[in-house]
């Protein structure tokens, strides 16, 4: 292997955490982005429509 063990463990231990934080921020931003509210509302309701044919 090219990388030695200590490096890999260090990367695993540090970047894993940064990655987790970045991911959480990203997901929260997406979920609470004001412009997305309407899309989510629509998606939420759309499955309840009683229409059972493909749209063309």
């Amino acid at each position: 292997m090219i990388a030695d063990h200590e490096t890999l463990v260090a990367i695993a231990k540090s970047w894993g955490l940064f990655y987790l934080i970045a991911m959480s921020i990203g997901v929260l931003l997406y979920a609470f982005w004001p412009r997305n509210r309407k899309r989510f509302e629509k998606a939420k309701m759309s499955i309840l429509e009683k229409d059972d044919r493909p749209w063309h």
Partner: peptide, 11 residues
């Protein structure tokens, strides 16, 4: 992250 280091590790 969990598996890769196990392949390089000698310890």
């Amino acid at each position: 992250v969990e598996i890769a280091p196990l392949f390089t590790i000698d310890e």
